[in-house]
Design a protein around this nucleic acid. Structure first.
Lengths: 136, 136
DNA sequence: TTGTTTCCTATTTATGTAATAGGATTATCG
DNA sequence: CGATAATCCTATTACATAAATAGGAAACAA
């Protein structure tokens, strides 16, 4: 019942890319440095996100990443499923007493994760940082 | 986002103990054999549950376990928290964009886990096994 | 051609789970 | 008392996965 760093890094990367929007490319090096993450490790994660079609990449100078779809359409459920893999329940499903409970748990989790997007995270962050979209 | 075997074994053990009720003691050996779990491993788990006050033990011949409180009052939240430990969120909490999301996730999970009890699991199992409390 | 970026693959290191092992303690019963 | 049967305690091993490191290949711009 925890999120691996791999997944958290992926989310951090997506948030960084989304924040830049179309104003420019986001590079691994830049994000890794700012967040104190290993460049080589974050590279691998960028690669996975790209293969899965969540982001689009360009190589070479001025290269980097863009989001493939709008931040509002990128759910955490999608990201987490990609990074953590399918919830392996091979053993738990063989336990009769637990199968209904487990199904319910998965549904509860999914509905929460699929209703939160990268866009939401950026909004949350703004609130915490005391930056608002409007002024009085 | 998975349950360790340790936790599943603990739940299996609690269910077995609850099923016996006051009709007799439940032993590790008996449950381990029936469920195909290592006796020595299940012993360790029984010990943890006992220390935490979820079950009560007697040693020696005719020894074994009883529930410490009613199966309806034994929530899975309690059991899972005990076996899996506190959800370690040391890193995730330092990520501003994720803190609100994480809080919400924990609340969602807790409310589901705390609303399911060992008693519920036994009822679920009965349903699956085609055994009902009443007949038409 | 040089430099900068993503991409690919292999290897190491660290960590925690699952299981094994051996014995100590407690209690029953003949 | 002595044999037996159960929980309890602690240490160690085996295994899997996560996290990180490493070296270079491919793509691209100036």
């Amino acid at each position: 019942m925890k999120l691996s760093r791999r997944t958290i890094y992926a989310i951090i990367l997506l948030v960084a890319i989304a924040k830049n929007g179309d104003s420019g490319n986001t590079t691994i090096k830049e994000v890794a440095k700012k967040e104190g993450i290993s460049v080589k490790y974050l590279e691998q994660i960028g690669c996975v996100l790209c293969k899965a079609g969540l982001i689009k990449s360009w190589r070479g100078p001025n290269g980097g990443y863009h989001l493939e779809k709008a931040a509002k359409d990128c759910t955490l459920g999608e990201v987490i499923k990609l990074m953590e893999g399918e919830v392996s329940s091979d053993y738990i499903e063989s336990v009769n007493a637990l199968s209904l409970f487990w199904d319910g748990l998965c549904k509860t989790l999914d509905s929460y994760l699929n209703s939160t997007t990268i866009y939401d995270l950026i909004e949350n962050e703004k609130t915490l940082d005391g930056v608002y979209d409007y002024c009085i």
